[in-house]
Simulated assay, not measured.
Amino acid sequence: MLLLVACESDNEHFCARYQYVYQQLVDEPDLPTYTEMKQKLLADLSAAKQDDDQAKFMLFILEDWHSEMKPQHEDGREFCMRVKRWQYYQ
């Protein structure tokens, strides 16, 4: 039972981070283009000597944002929990 609670907590943490980053993409009026952001994140990943989790996470959410997966009326955290986005993050 304790293991289940720990997993749930990790998933909730993932979805809270997901919501925060997704909302930044929605709210920021002066963002670079999708292509520019993606190229920068891919370059960051390529240049990283170790696994760059921040860039990988940002790229994951950037793709969701660009594809408009999340319904506009739904909160990012709720969407993440409902569709279990953590299962698709590698």
Rank of each mutant, 00 (worst) to 15 (best):
K49Q: 14
F14H: 00
D75E: 07
G76W: 02
M1V: 07
D64N: 06
D75C: 12
P32R: 05
E63T: 10
K84F: 00
E68P: 07
M37L: 12
P29F: 12
E74G: 13
E63R: 13
Y88M: 03
K84N: 02
P32H: 07
R82E: 05
C15T: 08
Q24N: 08
L45K: 03
M1R: 15
V5D: 04
L3C: 10
L59H: 07
A43F: 13
Y22R: 03
Y88F: 01
T33H: 13
A43K: 14
T33N: 15
Q23M: 05
Q90H: 12
Q54F: 07
E78I: 11
C80H: 03
L2W: 11
C7Y: 13
D44C: 12
E78S: 13
A48W: 00
F60R: 02
V21L: 02
D51P: 00
Q50P: 10
F14C: 05
C80N: 04
S67M: 08
N11A: 00
L41E: 04
H66N: 06
V5R: 14
F14E: 04
M81K: 05
R85D: 08
W65D: 03
D75R: 15
M1T: 00
E63K: 15
N11M: 05
A47G: 15
K70D: 04
E36T: 12
Q54R: 11
S46V: 14
D44N: 13
K40W: 11
L62K: 01
R85H: 00
E74N: 13
Y20V: 09
D27Q: 10
Q87L: 05
S67V: 13
E63C: 06
V5F: 07
M58D: 04
P32M: 11
M1N: 12
Q72D: 08
S9Q: 11
H13L: 01
D75S: 13
D27H: 08
E28F: 11
E74K: 15
C15E: 06
R85M: 03
Q39N: 15
K84A: 05
Q87Y: 10
L59Q: 07
Q23P: 02
L25E: 07
S46Q: 13
S46N: 12
T33I: 15
R77V: 06
M81A: 09
C15S: 05
A6P: 09
